[in-house]
Nucleic acid binder design. Structure first.
Lengths: 339, 339
DNA sequence: ACGTGAAATGCAAGCGATTGCATAAACGGA
DNA sequence: TCCGTTTATGCAATCGCTTGCATTTCACGT
């Protein structure tokens, strides 16, 4: 039988109001009483019943973490699990529990967002690398449930009044360009992918390139699928072919580490020297890149910073603050390693 | 303002009891009434308030997913995120939400398990690759909250009366041995790691080896840290050295794919031919292994099966069933690829 | 000694559902 | 026509906690 407020009240010979106030550190209760009651509660192993408290208070102490539908796609995977760890680390300190959910049901297609909101199962929402349709957003707003986008480029059309915390991908693209520019003249291959964040990286790359006085015609662009295989297959093939046709690439910027690592491996086996013949720069800074041979030069996404900012903002909002919405782009860092 | 039972009742001109019964498909309500009320509820966008329902029913429609503390260690990472996806897929169908938590607070060291249980925030618990101390288990049992271990070898001493669903690592070790045995005579290197599951794999390997009439003296054992680097460093070095000293290994069984891939890469660069000179077998079947060059032969952990079994068992328990506890070992599968 | 304000505590009404029990309506049989 | 069932519905208590307001107690100033 779980211990309730009433039990503690009986044991302490006071009313449940007093117990409630004591355990909630209300200033109405004198210290002495509070101490006694807290001791009794501790001895009895009392915990608040979350449902009861939720019902009474209108909040649950839980937030939802919405991951993209393609969460389990490997390339994104290795990325999001560390994101999740960071998030839980921050929120745990604030005593907030984390519910994970897909944006919509895999089977019925119903919106999980709306379901959670309508059931008042959560107080807030952290949306990772995902958009949210109008209906979902309206639902959240109508219910007054705060939400923060994280690791998602703000698209002004969709939710200009929401908070966004994202890597500054334009800056990231510039960093990659700088890494390649330093290796001197020559053509480079830019391996992008589908998505606004990739466009932003390309944009940064192009502009830094132009600012260095280099011609855009030196840049070839292809669009990959973010996989290791695309790197070891298509990308490496192009590099090798270009070399044998006498117009070698001096650098490759793969917009995900996985593609970069694939490229690296295939080039290694094909006998193409990295970085002396061609430099390779990745993006993300996944763990694996450090241990790879040669160690991958890459643009580190400031995951920890992003999650901390997003979580703190969400906590602020949960606390009732209504600050002006923020579209914060956090500068990534160039991890200059062997390639 | 959220819509409540009372609102629907007023609109329909009936009592809240009738509405509650209608929406819960009670047989007490005639079909016609039920339909009308359900329609109204739908029109009004009604949802049950989870807290109220939880308080009244004594259950929350949420389970906790407990991941190990070392969750974010990369080697485990790529593994657990797909686990999580599978779990959510299964539970979503049963309308059960998933709360993720570390077994204990990173900062205070308090048991999150106990906290969740005492607060009655969850109805059940799925424990991934983790032990649970006596106190936690006692707490769960006292509260009558069912829990299932998954992807964890049952240790009879700890919770013989709990359910376990785990890869049959002994069988996995045997599969690896078979893959290596087929390449004929010669010494092999067994790269293990710390943990009972690794011991089980070794055990299986040894016994299959012996059954094939081969001598145990052909097997060298080392203990790695499951990382790519350990493979590309220590393991590859040993293989190359052994070769140059005239007693080459004919096979390597790395008990995690990451170590195997590291090994593969370093051997590739060192010019050791795989599989003609030496075979390499991994364990886990991570996505990356398929795309690697050459594609890694490995033992696939039946993650999907494991999670489905565990989830279904938990759902059963949540439903009130009290079947005999099960220690189920699921047979892994040999993924015979290039190495 | 008494009125007054502050401090401590309790009462009881919610919060939004569920559900045992009571009641009302409808129906069928004699 | 009347009674006993069956069927449909409602009343009100309950789940555990919070909190506005009322009440009690006490110290203090006059």
């Amino acid at each position: 039988m779980p211990v309730t407020l009433k039990d503690i009240a009986r044991l302490a010979g006071v009313s449940t109001s007093t117990v409630s106030r004591s355990l909630n550190d209300s200033p109405l209760i004198p210290d002495e009483t509070r101490r006694v009651i807290q001791r009794i509660a501790r001895e009895q192993g009392f915990s608040f019943n979350a449902s009861a408290r939720g019902l009474s208070l209108g909040q649950t102490g839980t937030i939802a973490l919405i991951f993209p539908d393609y969460f389990e796609r490997f390339s994104i995977n290795l990325f999001f699990s560390s994101l999740q760890s960071h998030i839980r680390n921050v929120l745990e300190r604030a005593q907030v529990d984390v519910l994970v959910a897909f944006p919509r049901s895999r089977t019925t297609g119903e919106s999980n967002v709306q379901k959670l909101v309508m059931a008042r199962k959560i107080d807030g929402m952290l949306v990772v690398n995902n958009e949210m349709d109008r209906a979902d957003q309206d639902c959240l707003r109508a219910a007054g449930i705060p939400f923060v986008f994280l690791h998602k480029h703000p698209e002004d059309t969709l939710a200009p009044d929401a908070d966004y915390f994202c890597t500054d991908h334009v800056a990231g693209g510039r960093l990659a360009a700088q890494a390649l520019l330093s290796s001197g003249a020559g053509r480079v291959l830019l391996v992008s992918a589908i998505g606004e964040e990739f466009d932003a990286r390309s944009e940064g790359f192009f502009s830094a390139w132009a600012e260095a006085g280099r011609s855009k015609t030196d840049i070839d662009v292809v669009f990959g699928d973010c996989s290791f295989e695309y790197g070891s297959g298509e990308v490496a093939r192009r590099v090798v072919q270009a070399r044998s046709f006498g117009s070698p690439y001096r650098g490759v910027f793969c917009q995900t580490d996985l593609m970069a690592l694939g490229t690296l491996q295939a080039l290694g086996l094909a006998g193409v020297e990295v970085p002396s013949e061609v430099r390779v720069v990745g993006y993300d800074d996944i763990e694996l890149g450090k241990g790879f041979m040669p160690a991958l030069t890459t643009v580190r996404q400031p995951l920890q910073e992003i999650t901390e900012l997003a979580c703190h903002r969400l906590l602020e909002l949960l606390g009732g603050a209504r600050p002006a919405p923020e579209h914060r782009l956090i500068r990534p860092e160039l991890m200059l390693r062997a390639t």
